[in-house]
Design a protein around this nucleic acid. Structure first.
Lengths: 127, 127
DNA sequence: CTACGACTTGAAGTGCGCTTGAAGTCAAGG
DNA sequence: CCTTGACTTCAAGCGCACTTCAAGTCGTAG
């Protein structure tokens, strides 16, 4: 059993963030001993997934939905598929921005404006 | 010459956002006629770049820096190179999240927890 | 000339993801 | 027993990226 401080330390999150996650229903409310939260190791895994999903651009609300859904739920599976597609868009945009920046470096107009030719790629596809 | 409303419409941004961008120095303050902003077509290009960069995870502050820097500035070029590298990370994480979701779909534990094996990939590399 | 809508400014409000502060509680060490 | 420090709750505050509101101005159509 881990105290919140230990969890925070080993997960690299602040205790305030952990309490906040619990508050918004992203983490289950753990058993308490004398009012204090007692965590099992599971929470560390869960915090890792949360951080990871966050880094991929998921909001806490979306992550909560992923956790909360019943297994085998068609709606949830669809959500997952949508997200996979969305991430494809993220990747495409990131690649586009890379080539924009690389182009900018090459053509020395790193103010980006006036360098319209770089932006024709950029103009396409919005989210 | 375009009025703010026309710019907003053709760029798909709200006028409030345009004024906000100007306020924070992301868009230059345009010439005014009787107090009203008069834009040239340039602004449309600029707004496209702004939106695009935003979608790639740049903050408005960073985008402003990219615009503001003097051409040929070594510091700016370094910033661009750093960003290119950062985007590599973004792409990697997005791919990781995709395979996490795909794995979750396959193994039917779409609550993501209990599915620790999917997370070994996730555990690695932070930002 | 007047009415109307699109514009102006400045200030306050919004939602997200937390953080910070105040006031109090619990438990382990000296 | 008492102190210390990590914990508790609840409320307020913060930074970002805007939006909304209030009060007033401009210019064009009728």
């Amino acid at each position: 059993m881990l105290k919140i401080g230990e969890v925070a330390k080993s997960a690299g999150v602040r205790t305030s963030a952990i309490r906040y996650y619990e508050q918004i229903g992203l983490l289950p409310s753990p058993r308490r001993t004398g009012g204090r939260r007692q965590y099992t190791d599971d929470v560390l895994l869960r915090l890792r997934v949360i951080r990871f999903a966050q880094e991929c651009g998921f909001t806490l609300g979306e992550i909560r939905a992923l956790f909360a859904g019943r297994r085998y739920s068609a709606r949830l599976q669809q959500h997952a598929r949508d997200k996979i597609a969305e991430l494809e868009g993220v990747i495409g945009r990131a690649r586009g921005m890379q080539s924009l920046l690389r182009g900018a470096l090459r053509c020395k107009c790193l103010t980006l404006e006036d360098c319209g030719r770089l932006l024709r790629q950029a103009g396409r596809r919005s989210t």
